[in-house]
C-alpha cells in the first residue's frame, strides 16, 4: 500500500450490458455527464436551481459574479437528485455548492467567484482561458445531467 494520500482516479466506465441498467452503470453515466460538462463547457456552474429560478443565496452570488464578468454560463441544477452533488464532490474534491469551473478547472465557490469578480480578476481568468472575445454572444444554458439533455 502506498503511503501517499493521493486520491484515486474514478475507474473507467464499466462495460454496459444491453437491456439491463444497474445502479452502478447509472452512477457512472451520471459521473460521465458531469465530467463532460466540466471539461467541455467554457464556464460551468453547478448550482441549486437554475439561472431562471435560483434556489439558494450562494448560487445566486456565483451566478451574479459570472454575469457581471459577462461570462457564458452553462448551469447544472444539482437539486433534482442527491447523487448529482455526490458525484460532483467526488470529481472536484470540493464539498459545497455552488462550484464554478472555467475550461475544466475549478475556480471556486460563491465567495471566490464574488471576490474575483469584484477585484476584476475573474475577467482576467476568463480572457486567459477563453480568449478576449469570451463575452461576445455569451449565453446562459442549462444542462440536465440526469437525462443528458440541454436547454
Amino acid at each position: 500500500m502506498s503511503e501517499s494520500e493521493q486520491k484515486l482516479e474514478a475507474p473507467s466506465a464499466k462495460p454496459t450490458t444491453p437491456g439491463g441498467q444497474t445502479a452502478g452503470t447509472q452512477a457512472s453515466q451520471l459521473a460521465g455527464r458531469i465530467k463532460d460538462v466540466i471539461e467541455n463547457e467554457p464556464v460551468a456552474l453547478f448550482m441549486k436551481g437554475t439561472p431562471q429560478f435560483v434556489m439558494c443565496g450562494n448560487s445566486s452570488r456565483a451566478l451574479e459574479a459570472l454575469r457581471a464578468a459577462g461570462a457564458p454560463v452553462t448551469a447544472v441544477d444539482i437539486l433534482p437528485d442527491p447523487s448529482i452533488r455526490q458525484e460532483l464532490a467526488e470529481l472536484s474534491g470540493w464539498p459545497t455548492i455552488p462550484q464554478v469551473f472555467v475550461k475544466g478547472e475549478l475556480v471556486g465557490g460563491a465567495d471566490i467567484a464574488q471576490e474575483l469578480a469584484e477585484s476584476g480578476d475573474l475577467r482576467t481568468i476568463l480572457e486567459e482561458k477563453l480568449g478576449a472575445g469570451y463575452s461576445d454572444g455569451a449565453e446562459e444554458r442549462v444542462v440536465d445531467v440526469l437525462s443528458g439533455t440541454r436547454a
Binding site: 475549478l106 465557490g109 474575483l116
Partner: peptide
C-alpha cells in the same frame, strides 16, 4: 491562491460539512 486558501478551511470543517451541521458556509 484563493482556491487553496478556501480548501484549507473546507478541510478543517470537513466533518460538519459532511454531517449536515453546516447548511451554508461563507468563507473569508
Amino acid at each position: 491562491p484563493l482556491l487553496e486558501q478556501h480548501r484549507l478551511v473546507n478541510d478543517a470543517l470537513a466533518e460538519p460539512l459532511r454531517d449536515g451541521t453546516i447548511h451554508e458556509l461563507r468563507i473569508k
